[in-house]
Design a protein around this nucleic acid. Structure first.
Lengths: 209, 209
DNA sequence: AAAATTATGTAACCCTTGTTACACTTGTTA
DNA sequence: TAACAAGTGTAACAAGGGTTACATAATTTT
């Protein structure tokens, strides 16, 4: 496992820190669809992503959900960071989007490493920075874009994190993640297909370009 | 100035750190309406808020804006934090909402203090945590609420940060911050007045309760 | 005080999105 | 293979909110 750690985080962390991570971290493989954490749950460890993707969702009291962003290789979960420190409940739901490999770090190490390693502090700050920017991007989408633009942006992101570039979702699933209805999505998808932007199939969609 | 620092941050920071802040920080009073930073500008120092409020806005390419949240006493700007480290441009606009007193810290100190003081690290993490939660709250509003609910929530927040509980804005100003049109706001405000929730006046609004 | 400016009220209309309903197709199960 | 379930296409309609237009009221300027 030290190899995958080195490959993905070797350029970020000094050797002492890599050794420590190797000692206390546990390697995990999680399959697509696995629910990493739900809203209201407490966090007990912090993930470093090696491969695959994790989608982060927000949910309101009625169970309506909204896709916030994806975590990918080299990312960690900023929400986890804040939850660890404050010992507060998770504000988001995290589900594995494509089969993922990750290293789980016990949360006690966070504070210790923040004092000890400059590279760790930078990583944590960098992570917060990325997450804040992704949240801003999400806000831009829902505040400033119309549904067809949001949908196209969504499809591009989905394709990006999926390795083979194919969006393997039903219209209903897309509707949930964009917080709208299936009929609206079907309608707009058909429009995008007529514009030559995408190709529709049963259970999957491909981008044309 | 050491007194105002002690009053507002004494419980957060150890004495050594307070002394350092007092040495390198510069005290500032900024009037309502003052633009602290614009999108695309570089950040040169970091504010610690003593009193007053600062509103943080997002803006798209067409100049359309959207209120994200308010900073108040004891807060700092998480965006500034990230900008300092990455030497990147600001992603947001910050305007003084009610006359504010603040202490400006040169950004070079950030890294130094993060290594040296645990209380500083906690303050920075805590700050990120709060900002992420406020962003989530903003996302909830625009994704899950209808305009009349958003408006009422907006009015309550405005009243909270305004000391005297009076919302001193025109319908047009409210429309800008919620990214909608003046006519829509006038229409909904009248509805809220008829429901007995608010009282409308020229240039200001009061909450009923 | 007349004129101009700013703020608000409101009607009429349109577009986007959400809802309901139902047909059709594809895949799965009995 | 018949029955069922799941996914998609589409029409018709409703509702929310954005736009245009104009009237009136309050305030400031000349």
């Amino acid at each position: 496992m030290i190899q995958e750690l080195k490959n993905n985080y070797g350029h970020l962390f000094e050797n002492d820190l890599l050794t420590e991570i190797n000692q206390v971290g546990t390697f995990k493989e999680v399959p697509e669809g696995f629910k990493m954490i739900n809203i209201g749950e407490y966090v007990k460890s912090m993930p470093l992503l090696i491969s695959g993707a994790i989608k982060i969702l927000r949910e309101d009291n009625d169970g309506d959900e909204l896709l916030l962003y994806f975590l990918e290789k080299g990312d960690t979960c900023a929400m986890t960071l804040t939850c660890c420190l404050g010992q507060t409940k998770s504000e988001i739901k995290a589900i594995v989007e494509t089969d993922a490999k990750l290293i789980m770090i016990p949360i006690q190490k966070m504070e210790e490493w923040s004092a000890k390693y400059k590279s760790w502090r930078n990583f944590v700050f960098e992570s917060y920075h990325n997450r804040l920017n992704e949240m801003l991007d999400t806000i831009d989408s829902i505040a400033f874009l119309k549904m067809d633009e949001r949908l196209l942006k969504y499809l591009n992101e989905k394709a990006r994190v999926s390795e083979d570039g194919i969006i393997k979702n039903t219209h209903q699933e897309i509707a949930y993640e964009l917080h709208t209805s299936r009929v609206v999505i079907s309608r707009l998808l058909k429009k995008l297909e007529n514009l030559g932007e995408i190709k529709l199939h049963r259970n999957y969609i491909t981008l044309v370009k």
